[in-house]
Design a protein around this nucleic acid. Sequence first.
DNA 1: TGTTAGCACTCAAGGAGATTGAGTGCTAAC
DNA 2: GTTAGCACTCAATCTCCTTGAGTGCTAACA
Lengths: 361, 361
Amino acid sequence: MDTVLNERKLKILRAVVDDYITTGIPVGSRTISRKYLDWSSATIRNEMMDLEELGYLAQPHTSAGRIPSERAYRLYVEQLMNVSELNSEEIEALQSHVHSRSRDLKQLLREAAQAISDATTYTAFVLPPNPRDIRINNIQLVPVTQGLALLVLVTDVGIFKDTFIRTSPTFTQEDLYKITTMLQQSLVGHTLNEVSSRLEGQMRDSVQGQRDVLDAVLEGINEQLGAQESKEIVVGGHANILKHPEYADVEKARNFFAAMESRETLLPMLERSRGMEFTVTIGNENSHEAMRDCSVVTVSYSIDGAPAGSIGVIGPTRMNYSHVASVLNYMQGIMSEMMDERSESVRKELPQPGEINDGQQ
Amino acid sequence: MDTVLNERKLKILRAVVDDYITTGIPVGSRTISRKYLDWSSATIRNEMMDLEELGYLAQPHTSAGRIPSERAYRLYVEQLMNVSELNSEEIEALQSHVHSRSRDLKQLLREAAQAISDATTYTAFVLPPNPRDIRINNIQLVPVTQGLALLVLVTDVGIFKDTFIRTSPTFTQEDLYKITTMLQQSLVGHTLNEVSSRLEGQMRDSVQGQRDVLDAVLEGINEQLGAQESKEIVVGGHANILKHPEYADVEKARNFFAAMESRETLLPMLERSRGMEFTVTIGNENSHEAMRDCSVVTVSYSIDGAPAGSIGVIGPTRMNYSHVASVLNYMQGIMSEMMDERSESVRKELPQPGEINDGQQ
DNA sequence: TGTTAGCACTCAAGGAGATTGAGTGCTAAC
DNA sequence: GTTAGCACTCAATCTCCTTGAGTGCTAACA
């Protein structure tokens, strides 16, 4: 049924979508005839009737022009739209937003979100690197007091050191170093996700005191993962969405904002973008009720070549998909670059596995 | 000039403000006569003319009722309004929002903001405890590697441990413990704000190697302070503001959101609330252009009896000041309580100054 | 002298009716 | 197969009118 569309129908459909995306008002046959294609309005009218029958176009009322259906948008995104390069002004605007190559990851993500939003006029979001996919560069138990140690975890994206671990009071520093070595050998180079399975073997072979500590380490890491995961989708440019007539109705705008404000609606919506190079979710394809007339476009960025998190925008289904795709594509490059830089600098600043025990013993 | 208002004028003014706050439409003399006061509409009309002349009331157009001026609001807030207690439903609603007495400070503040916003229907914000006023419970340099130490700072509100400090490679653990002891003696019980001045004396008396370390410690703490300070005003309930007719105009709503989104406009606006028990800023009293027709109400909460951060709402000048004040008052209690609990649990879980060196030496 | 009733006037809001114009479907001619 | 022509539809816009809440002023009242 998809292939039923002949060349002319495709051209007309593209014209309709293009025009509707830019103007926001239903487009009639004469408009297409004048502005886009050289057939007469009557011819185009006939084709549009067919397209309506096929479910690609719809009429708000009898004497109005036609608007694309979600089906049409999907076809448009997959076959019809031409993703153009950004011009130099746009590139400059993007770059200028993201100047602070700061060490504050949050700040960096916030700037990125704002940049994307301003460039697209839709609301933008950034998913920070998925903690489960983060690679461990170094892990170490640092003695703080008798019976208390700090777990220091060095990764590509930063250092986690929020977990204190209680040990038996009889535990010596020697014992801690032993466990540190054990942890390093077993975990360095692996992702946080693999920690559980990799530590299990260790735990079976170790004596009671050690096992308690490993247990605590495992628990600490898992707690970290949980805390990191649920929070901190960074959203930027709420205000921009109000530029579009779709949200001229305050009630609609309010629903949109309310939905955007709760992580519980946001997370599942962005879940499918995890690990995907490029996704477009149109209207009813969205899981959440309040987002049924929104579309979400995402692109993933990488750290050291491996997919990490994603960036995207959310806006009305009548969204400038091609421009959004261009912006996200470009931004993906910037993000990956910046994350690589960060990971590089984190790595330089902190002790490497080899370095650690030399110093202490 | 203020005392020129006789009893009746005050009563009328209060009635006008009360009515305008609830209905949002200009209020006429007959309305006051019917709903509030037993003088005839003509009498009230005369008084209202006087009030207009005195700058307390204004007319949008000749044949409309009158609306309060900012001057009227100020008088209302300071003398006329009666702050009532919350009823049990409202209290329950507030309490139910803030259930997670979680260890995640951010999450806690977010819930508080949402609770306040939902209770008031305005946008709420929470200023986290001012880092400068936070008291140091413990401070310690933990050796990580030869030439590398971690600065661990235990405070009422949490543990800061984001600063690595490079030492000379010849530095021994002994040396570190010495400095730790020195730091503890000099800083424990004092606020972060006092660190610079208190360390200065120490630095003059110490030898080169030590001085470098103290320098690094100082720098690390200041960096922390800066990072903490600028970020993390928690805002909640953006959507709620759209319930008010003031923001039926999308352009206005957009300006509001844009302003709310940038920390640069938010911070100076809330700056004057620092350390103040209760503040009301009405309309043009606001520094920021985009907030000229907004009012801000703040109340501060405490940790262990000392003022820490503040909570507040921001909404149209036609704001239900008395209800907002009640909600904030009540919430202040909850917040302080929760922060005390947190500080208590942080204290229990972590090593006390006395405990530290015993273990290590 | 302070309060009130009465009256003429103003003006935004809202509704009825007419006009406009973009768009359609159908038919017949090219 | 394509196009011109035509009658028809309907949201949007404009104009005109009515309505009603409100005002300021004046004169009468207690």
